[in-house]
Design a protein around this nucleic acid. Sequence first.
RNA 1: GGAGAAUUAGCUCAGCCGGUUAGAGCGCUCGCCUCACACGCGAGAGGUCAGCAGUUCGAGUCUGCUAUUCUCCACCA
Length: 878
Amino acid sequence: MLEKNYNPKDFEEKIYEKWETSGAFQPDMRSDKDAFSIVIPPPNVTGVLHMGHALDDTLQDILIRYNRMLGKKVLWQPGTDHAGIATQMVVERNLAKEGLTRHDLGREEFVKRVWKWKEQSGGTICRQLRRLGASCDWSRERFTMDEGLSHAVRKIFVSLYKDGLIYKAKKLVNWDPALETAVSDLEVVQKETVGKMYYYKYPLENNPNEFIHIATTRPETMFGDTAVAVSKDNKKLAHLIGQNCIIPIINRVIPIIADDHADPEKGTGAVKITPAHDFNDFEVGKRHNLPMINILNADATLNENTPYAGMTTQEARIKTLETLEQLGLIDKIEDHPMVIPYGDRSGVVIEPYMTDQWFVDAPKLAVEARRAVTDGEMEFVPATYEKTYFEWMNNIQPWCISRQLWWGHQMPIWYGPDDTIFCEENEELAQKEADKHYGKHVELRRETDVLDTWFSSGLWAFSTFGWPEQTQYLKTFYPTSVLVTGFDIIFFWVARMMMMSMYMMKRVPFKKCYIHGLVRDEQGRKMSKSKGNTVDPMETIEKYGADALRFFMAASETQGRDINLSDSRIQGYRNFATKLWNAARFCEMNECYSVKNFDINSAKLAINKWIIAKAKEATEAVTDNLNNYRFSEAANAIYQFTWGTFCDWYIELTKPVFYGENATEIEETRAVAAWVLDRILIVLHPFMPFITAELWNNLTARNIDIIKANWPLTEKINNADKYEIDWAVDFISAIRSLRSAMNLPAAAKLTAYVKSSNEDLALISKQQKMICTLARLETVESLANKEITQDMAQTASHEAVIYIPLKGVIDFDAERARLNKELETLNKNLDGYARKLGNESFVAKAPAAVVAEERRRQTEAMENKARVEEALARIANF
RNA sequence: GGAGAAUUAGCUCAGCCGGUUAGAGCGCUCGCCUCACACGCGAGAGGUCAGCAGUUCGAGUCUGCUAUUCUCCACCA
């Protein structure tokens, strides 16, 4: 017996546990069916589930469960990411509480600490994914720093290095002074701020009373200046080119050079060039062979190349300005809107900084990655995201992959005594190569840098399957079927996976890439911890159940658009689950599952043929929409069928049967009701796995788990017939409408007389009992020779005109108002039809079927109009 | 500066290949505790599909322009 109330907490976790322990999420590797696979976007190992995951993983689980029910060999590969910077930061913060830094511990000890932290607080997110119902094959869970995945990292690194696609270079990079590491372009966020523009002047070398005026937002960098640039087209300043000027305070002489980087329209037209601390200046410096003077320490304090060693840039800026002021060199200071780069993790200002770093030749790798999308080997859904992808790929810069961190994959690079580089998969091999190279045994020094986190996640689509081993899983599931992820990591991850996979595997990592939007708060604002507007999915699940949250995500997901979280909608889907629960209880109470071996094609009752037809349509709609990644349409199709068709109509239609005495009819209706409910459970299962499983298990004994139930597509249904009940539904609705408009008490039993074709009358007489029950009529019969009287309210459904005597209680004003409104609508429509059909071009050019349909509507509306006018005339004097 | 997207009911949004009277949920109004369900049932109100022009027999849907909003990328003189 089902509980009276739907209580997801009673069963959701239990059901999941049973699935997991029974291996229900594992693919049958002996099956010869098609494979379907997804690799999960690996969450940070120490992270917690947020609404973005809830969306992302719900969509994946829907696809996974759907394909599993289609009978495919399905694998959802789970795992987590070591998240280099993020994780190291957390552990360092914890250390700071003990008053320690990582340097106090030393590298080895620190890394041990991180592993310990991972053991302690890792795994939370995987437990939460289980709570959401994600049917991942946890027996295959991977971590980007597992031995196997680390091996893959080293192997591909060596390969890229030997192919000349990884190189070391001394370049300006984005430097995070808090973390003291380089970061990639993508890890820098630009923020609008109002800063100051400082105008001041440098004296000329051979005439200290003359000056060249410059403008800068960062005066403290002047100690790194190695030139001042002026455009040769700058008529006012060009004469200074070739002269030298003097950097005040330090009195260093630098040349005034000609370079088009100096825009005559901007600032003063003359730009100080600081090649070691500005990306543009760096290029200028290279063009003119300028010295590059580094003025910063790794923590962004000024170094001994400046007079203000040890000061922060802010302190140095103030000091510099004070000194310039004393020297009388400042022209003016203005407010200046500008953008300043911040580290997306550390939140501090990023400094362009000159260091030795390692780079991946992304522009070369991008060629194949781009081609694969151009040639349709990988398709974005929605397709418009390929523009974003191409835009970035076409302007791609070398990818800085080295990080001066301790947590991550240490680069497989060893240096010989003279800094010769040996890049091998392990130390032994490197040693062997080195010994060969030097002709004797030498001591090697390993590169201390680790790799950008995204380097290892770039391999995720094949490293998780055991690559470089040619495993059965790799052969079966690579390339994966689809990647589901947010647009915010197209560059970080999708693009990198494409590049790495095309390089190493020569095949795309996934055939499709489904991109979804962001989950925002109720007001459409981005959710963030600092704003305090985040909603914890676990709390939502606690409140409404995982199924309600999942269904909300699916029903809201319309190809790539952001989703505004809505408590009332989630609650609505919990109500939907309750509705289904109660419908199941109705079936249980009426012993629907007691009938065995009923052939669905032998159903004879009109209501049963009707619901079978509707169920078939709904299934096809869900299937079609899922095949095209239209999640909201798929969810809505099953929602509308379950609630609007099955509960609102079919269950009501079965009541006259169940409460009647015809055993054959009861038997048939029981069987069909059970059959339809089963279809609902199956088709709804990918969206709401828990309630569907709970009902599936409790309604009757089953020989198969719902997770592996066959998707009901292939069923042969050949006795579907919608006409009769569709007609009756409209007929009943018309009477209900009239009752409501005439303010008739719900309990009042009425008589209805109908004027219509013999077919309609036959249908009514056949469905007499059902119509009377649902429309609350005493009886419904043919108008025949009965006289139409003034106390009859009149309405119509299709061509049937319905008369209901109101025995003196008719409210003539209400009836007139109702009829007039109907008339108004009819007139409006008739105008439209007349206009269209009066248009010769329409009649000549539109398809015949469209024209015929238009004519039919016109005729019908004209008949209805005559009917309504007649009724109005009849009561005109009251 | 470069690129992309959006504008439909009070609110949040669907609307696929152009073809009925443009849909849903929430909210609102009226009537109902009808033996599955008040987390419910029945019936309603509510829209110049941002504006203008164009293509077409026919435009919410296709094209162009305008207005407004948003997102991404680039940008420290």
